[in-house]
Amino acid sequence: LTGDREQPIQIEANQAIINNVEGTATYQGNVIVTQGSIHITAETVIINYSQEQNITNVIARGEPVSFQQRLDQGDNIKAKAKEMEYNATKDMLHLRQEAELRKEKNGEDTYTSQAPNITYDTQHGIISADKGDSKQGRIIMTLKPQVKSSPAP
């Protein structure tokens, strides 16, 4: 949702390590991250923050990491990958390794994309996929055509 970005980020985990020198906070064990309608589950989440203590990006790793967000038009974005990086300053979500992203409306997929890497611009809703380094990587995109309501006889 548009307002997600203004919402606070909540994190739950089994353990955490805060390293002031590196400017990182690493959360481990059943990690759940929520921000407005965004919901991420992962095994490890690393928050990087700047010298001024602002969050610059969040990296999540898991088998897989799952991401979910509701869009303004009522669709749901659901994504999976072994690694996700959310760049807070650019509103970009990078899905790496066995990435899959689906758009869903009323429980039905309207769009699916599978690729080694997928990038999702959460601000503008733009999705792009690439093979990354893997030679055999394939990009599969499926767009479900919208059913046109047939004119009344």
Binding site: R5, I11, E12, A13, A16, I18, N19, Y27, A88
Partner: peptide, 14 residues
Amino acid sequence: KIELLSQVRGNYVL
């Protein structure tokens, strides 16, 4: 370095 040992809950603002 600060290690938090269990039941970690964080609340952050961007």
